[in-house]
């Protein structure tokens, strides 16, 4: 049991960070406002979670200008995608283990 829990990624412990990764798994690029609408969180909250994912190099950030407005888009890195999949597999295994124990 201990081993299985070790496979869960600390970076995905938060609901928001898990949500961000889920969205970036199926979309090439997503900007800040889209994430905010989909996850229904505040600017500050989202920004800090994004920062944490960026620090663990699970997401890549690119900044550009649309007209004169700055626009920041986010994409999942290869490393992030692998980590996310492993995390989901770990959750799935927890489930399966419970079932066989019963």
């Amino acid at each position: 049991m201990k081993d299985l829990l070790d496979n869960l990624d600390k970076a995905f412990e938060s609901r928001v960070r898990l949500g961000i990764m889920a969205i970036l798994m199926v979309n090439e690029q997503v900007d800040f406002n889209q994430l905010k609408e989909l996850l229904e969180v505040t600017d500050g909250n989202l920004a800090s979670h994004l920062k944490q994912l960026e620090t663990s190099s699970y997401i890549a950030v690119s900044k550009q200008f649309v007209g004169r407005k700055p626009n920041t888009t986010y994409a999942a890195t290869e490393q992030g995608k692998i980590a996310f999949e492993q995390h989901l597999n770990a959750i799935e295994q927890l489930f399966n283990n419970k079932k066989t124990n019963i």
Partner: peptide, 21 residues
């Protein structure tokens, strides 16, 4: 617990659906 995990998984699935389709 299980219920929470299950809830997380459904939420992830729904986010992936809603954001891409």
């Amino acid at each position: 617990d299980d219920r929470e995990h299950l809830h997380t998984l459904t939420e992830i699935r729904s986010l992936m659906e809603r954001s891409s389709r």
